[in-house]
Computed example of a mutant assay.
Amino acid sequence: MHALRSWLWFGGDGVLRQKQEEAQQEVVRCLNVVTNVVVVSNTVYAQLALQRQQAAGQPVLPEHLAQLSPARFAHLNRLGRYSFQLPADVLVNGLRPLRPLP
């Protein structure tokens, strides 16, 4: 979780530069919100992937589950442009479809 939070806090190199306590608290609260968004999103998609794997008849073993973490972030793009328009491939439930099984 610390690595995720450090990665998300790329502006200012993880240093609180505001001198006012209220401004510092605002920065930390924003970081908490973004961290929670990543964790919830990762959890939802991991759960969908596991359900699809089970539905395809592939076992979900405990050693596989032990490797899962909701704090992974290599698949995220923190820089660049963001669009909040729903793309055409978004499903009725508001989620993007999973990649095909190998």
Score class of each variant (00 low, 15 high):
1 M>G: 09
1 M>D: 05
2 H>K: 14
4 L>M: 08
4 L>H: 08
5 R>L: 11
5 R>H: 08
5 R>W: 05
6 S>R: 06
6 S>A: 07
8 L>Q: 06
8 L>F: 07
8 L>S: 01
9 W>Q: 02
10 F>V: 05
11 G>W: 09
11 G>S: 15
11 G>H: 15
13 D>S: 13
13 D>I: 07
14 G>Q: 04
14 G>M: 06
15 V>L: 00
16 L>N: 04
21 E>R: 15
21 E>C: 08
22 E>P: 05
22 E>H: 09
23 A>K: 03
24 Q>L: 02
24 Q>P: 11
25 Q>C: 15
25 Q>F: 04
26 E>A: 01
27 V>F: 08
27 V>L: 14
29 R>M: 00
29 R>N: 14
29 R>Y: 02
30 C>W: 10
30 C>T: 12
30 C>L: 14
30 C>V: 01
31 L>A: 03
31 L>V: 04
32 N>G: 15
32 N>S: 11
34 V>C: 10
37 V>R: 03
37 V>N: 13
37 V>P: 00
38 V>Y: 09
39 V>K: 14
39 V>Y: 04
39 V>F: 01
39 V>S: 02
40 V>L: 15
40 V>H: 12
41 S>T: 14
42 N>R: 08
42 N>M: 08
44 V>H: 11
44 V>S: 04
44 V>R: 09
44 V>Y: 05
45 Y>K: 04
45 Y>E: 13
45 Y>S: 02
46 A>V: 05
48 L>K: 11
48 L>R: 15
48 L>W: 09
49 A>R: 11
50 L>Y: 07
51 Q>N: 15
51 Q>T: 04
52 R>V: 07
52 R>Y: 00
53 Q>P: 08
55 A>W: 10
56 A>C: 05
57 G>Q: 00
58 Q>T: 06
58 Q>N: 10
58 Q>Y: 09
58 Q>M: 09
59 P>G: 08
59 P>E: 00
59 P>I: 01
59 P>C: 00
60 V>A: 06
60 V>R: 06
61 L>I: 10
64 H>Y: 08
65 L>E: 03
65 L>C: 12
66 A>S: 12
66 A>Y: 10
68 L>K: 06
68 L>C: 05
69 S>G: 05
69 S>F: 04
69 S>V: 08
70 P>A: 11
70 P>Y: 05
71 A>M: 06
72 R>V: 12
72 R>A: 15
72 R>F: 12
75 H>S: 08
75 H>W: 01
76 L>R: 07
76 L>Y: 13
77 N>Y: 10
79 L>A: 13
80 G>W: 03
80 G>K: 01
81 R>H: 04
82 Y>G: 05
83 S>V: 03
84 F>R: 03
88 A>C: 02
89 D>M: 04
89 D>R: 09
89 D>L: 10
90 V>C: 01
91 L>A: 07
91 L>I: 01
91 L>R: 13
92 V>E: 13
92 V>T: 13
92 V>K: 13
93 N>T: 02
93 N>S: 00
93 N>E: 10
96 R>N: 07
97 P>A: 09
101 L>E: 15
101 L>A: 03
102 P>N: 07
